[in-house]
Amino acid sequence: MNNIGFALVVMLLRALAQLPYGLVARLGSGLGALLYCIPSRRKHIVQVNLQLCFPGKTAAEYELLGRSHFRHVVRSYVERGVQWFGSARAIEKLVQLESRIDLDDENSPPTIFMGFHFVAIEVGCMLYSMKLPITALYTPMSSKRLNTLAVEQRGRFGADMVMRADSARRILKLLRKGGSVMLAADMDHGIENSVFVPFFGVPACTLTSVSRLARLGGARVVPFVTEVLPDYKGYKMTIFEPLADFPSESDETDARRMNEFLESQIVRFPEQYYWVHRRFKHRPEGVAGVY
C-alpha cells in the first residue's frame, strides 16, 4: 500500500469514527450487499463453506445466507473506524457485556480466553482490554502499514499485542505467573500442530495450541463470543463458564470439543461467522481440495 492509499484509509477510518454508529453500520451493510452482487473469489469461498457446513439447503437459501454474511463482513470492516479511533466511552456504550465468571476475582487462576472469528470479535477484545490486563495474540496482515496500524489501535487501551508466531514461550511464562491471554484458534493455519477433526461433519484442520498451552500453563479455558445485535443496537459480548475437564490428555479430543462449542454458537447466528476464510484450506491426505 503506497503512502497516499494508506493515508486515505486512515482518514476514512477517522472520519467514520465521528459519525453516528447506526449510520456507519448501515453504510457498511449496504456496501456489503452491493459487493455480493459482483463475482469474486471471496464470494466463491463463502458459498463453498456454506454448502459444506449446511448441506441440504436450497440455492435460494444459500444465496440469502451468503448475502447476509457479506453484509456483516463488509460492515465489520467499515466499523473499524469506530473500533480503532472511537473513544473508550463510545465503545463501552456500544457493547453489552455478560460474564458468567467473576472478572473482578483477584484470585482467579491463569486463564486462556478463547475467542472465535465472528465478525464482531474485534470490538469484544477491545472492550475487555479496557477493563482488565490482557495479552492478545494476532496474526500479521499482508500489508505492513495496515498491520502496524491495527496493532497500535487494538492495543491502545492497554492490551499487550503478541504476534502468534512469537507467542508460545511468552504465553507460557505469562500463564505460569497467573496471567491471562486472549486468542482465537478456529482458523486453518496449516497441518503443523493441528489435527483433523469434524467441523459441521467436515474434517477441518484444527489447532491444538489451546489444549497444549492450557496443559503446560495450568490454565482454565474460558470461551467468549461477541455478536452483532439486531436493529443496529451495537454488540453483545458473552464470556462463558470455563470448559469442564479441559484440557484432557488428548489433543484430538480437546480440538473436537472446541469445534463442538463453536458449532453451538454458529447455529445461533450463522450469518455472523467468518465464512470468507478458507476454513478447509488443508485437507486430509488423499482428500481433494474444495476451493
Rank of each mutant, 00 (worst) to 15 (best):
F199S: 12
G66I: 09
I101P: 08
T208V: 15
C205N: 15
V123P: 02
Q83D: 05
A185F: 13
V290Q: 01
G178M: 08
C37Q: 05
A120R: 06
E227D: 07
F116Y: 15
A150D: 00
H117N: 13
Q96A: 06
V276Y: 07
A136S: 15
H44R: 15
V151Q: 01
K144A: 14
Y21W: 11
P198A: 06
H117P: 14
R26N: 05
G115A: 07
H44W: 02
K131A: 06
G30R: 00
G30I: 01
Y274N: 09
T226D: 01
E227N: 06
L12P: 00
E61L: 10
D245S: 12
C37V: 02
A90Y: 03
S40L: 03
A288V: 05
M237P: 01
F246H: 07
K177M: 10
R26D: 11
N49I: 09
E263A: 14
D251Q: 13
H117S: 13
D245F: 04
S250W: 15
E260R: 13
E271G: 09
G286C: 12
M1G: 11
G86Q: 03
T226Y: 00
N3K: 11
A204Y: 10
K173E: 08
E92L: 07
L146T: 02
Y273A: 05
C53D: 05
E227C: 03
V162C: 12
E271D: 14
G124M: 04
L19E: 01
V181D: 09
R220C: 09
T148R: 13
G22N: 08
G179N: 04
V9P: 00
A255W: 08
M114W: 13
P223H: 10
G289Q: 08
V48Q: 09
E63A: 08
D104R: 09
R42D: 10
A288R: 08
V225C: 12
L16T: 02
Q47E: 15
E98F: 03
F54D: 05
N49M: 09
R283H: 07
R169P: 06
L207R: 13
L127K: 07
M1R: 05
P133D: 11
L132V: 07
N2F: 04
E260V: 05
L97H: 03
Y235R: 04
E271R: 14
A255I: 06
Y273H: 03
T253R: 12
G190H: 12
A88G: 13
V151D: 01
M130H: 02
A159I: 10
Q18E: 10
R42L: 11
R220A: 14
E61W: 02
I101E: 11
L50N: 02
K131S: 10
D245K: 10
W275H: 10
E263L: 04
T238C: 02
P39I: 07
G30E: 01
P110F: 12
G28R: 01
E263P: 04
V197S: 06
V197C: 08
L23V: 15
L94T: 13
A168F: 14
R145Y: 01
L8H: 01
H69C: 09
V267P: 11
A17N: 12
F240Y: 15
L65Q: 08
A136M: 15
V46P: 03
M163W: 00
I266C: 04
K57Q: 13
V9G: 00
P247Q: 11
V119I: 10
D102K: 14
A168G: 05
P55Q: 05
F6W: 11
I134F: 04
V202L: 09
K233M: 06
Q47G: 00
D231W: 07
